[in-house]
Design a binder for these strands. Sequence first.
DNA 1: AAAGATATAAAGTACGTACTTAATCAAGGG
DNA 2: CCCTTGATTAAGTACGTACTTTATATCTTT
Lengths: 233, 233
Amino acid sequence: MTAVTRHSWKDIRNRIHARILDGTYTPGDKLPRDEDIAGELGCARSTVQRAMRDLSDSGTIERRRKGGTHVRADPVTRAIFDIPITRREVEQKGSVYGYQLISQGIAQTPRSVTAKFGLQAPATMLRVQALHLADQGPFIYEDRWVCLQTVPEISNVDLERESANEWLVRNKPYSRCDLRFYAIKASSHDARVLEIAPGEALFVMERTTWIGTKPITTVKAVTTPGYQLLTQI
Amino acid sequence: MTAVTRHSWKDIRNRIHARILDGTYTPGDKLPRDEDIAGELGCARSTVQRAMRDLSDSGTIERRRKGGTHVRADPVTRAIFDIPITRREVEQKGSVYGYQLISQGIAQTPRSVTAKFGLQAPATMLRVQALHLADQGPFIYEDRWVCLQTVPEISNVDLERESANEWLVRNKPYSRCDLRFYAIKASSHDARVLEIAPGEALFVMERTTWIGTKPITTVKAVTTPGYQLLTQI
DNA sequence: AAAGATATAAAGTACGTACTTAATCAAGGG
DNA sequence: CCCTTGATTAAGTACGTACTTTATATCTTT
């Protein structure tokens, strides 16, 4: 009776990864085929496949049918960020969350918004400006456009009470999401809303969502000075 | 002879996802066990498992052993970013890459750097300041500390010719990486190096890496005005 | 030599089965 | 009543097999 040792895919992954780390396989190198690795390490091919997918997901290797597996020649840092709804973010850092509607109204989308959605022509959408507060102080200012054709129900929502952020995230799942991060100098308007000095450097997160090809919403979330976004560990 | 229809895990995932999108299962709801879904949709449990893992990875659902599968009550936007080495980034936007060493020297880590690594006491490390150029103009300024104990070989690298960025990424794989993004106002020093006006808002990416528990390097990469980081689609 | 057809290699997928792990619940004992 | 112990449940994993997909390479034909 041979003691049948079973190998977890994590072990297999670690052993392959270790070979990359120690230079057995260097960037650009081709790895043996799954089947050979399976034979060598004494496990099933499907276990190697599982390990390889993990390494592939993390950006360590690249796999192509027929082409085989290669150590990524051109390493990237692949990072995963979780952006929670603002209320949760505030509450998780132990602060009291607050919300204020600044203004809402229906208008034609300006060129910049039309472009973000990839639309040909301007559309009539709902614009909502609101402030999220932490411990009574400004935390994030959001400037949002919501597509009324895709989300007509938003008209029935009392945006004085419930933030568009939360209503949308709970009621309008999306199938596509574009995100972009950058820095801006606080305009006098930003400064007034966020109660800071004009000219401060502010971190901005922009998010645009669609369901299928239909636009849902685009938000520019302007954070207060000192805000940092961290990777999810 | 029954025509045996085979179902791809992506189909299965889409059908489950569709039920979340259309409100059949709403946030917080418990989904049937994998086996029941498999029976209902006419596929193997392992196919459901594959579909579920994908939905779980994307943050749509949460799974717990014995606890079952639930639609995430508290939706997050989960984004994946690929941060390439700077040379590649410049070349990919069609510009000519350039690199200049500004200064290098050995020094005690200041409190902020010591803290980033989670060290108890300051350590002696190599500090490298350098500029990445795109089409002869400043693109990213990096201020880096490299742990000499973990990476003694760095001493033999000619940092006038090869950027620490590239040498490290090709020669020193890491097992842990912390990332943080934020905005700063350009100091007079930043402004001089990047050839911009002091007080500009700049987007900053900070990255700290370890191998096991040993620190490798920490970089503060200060981008030029207008820089945007986009999700990988 | 260029273009197209065919073969082939390697990853990807699907399924069934059996076993493992972790969380939860219930029963029993102090 | 609390704590421990054991049973149960559902996800997670491992494996073998068979089939599919997609690049790549080779061969044929014009």
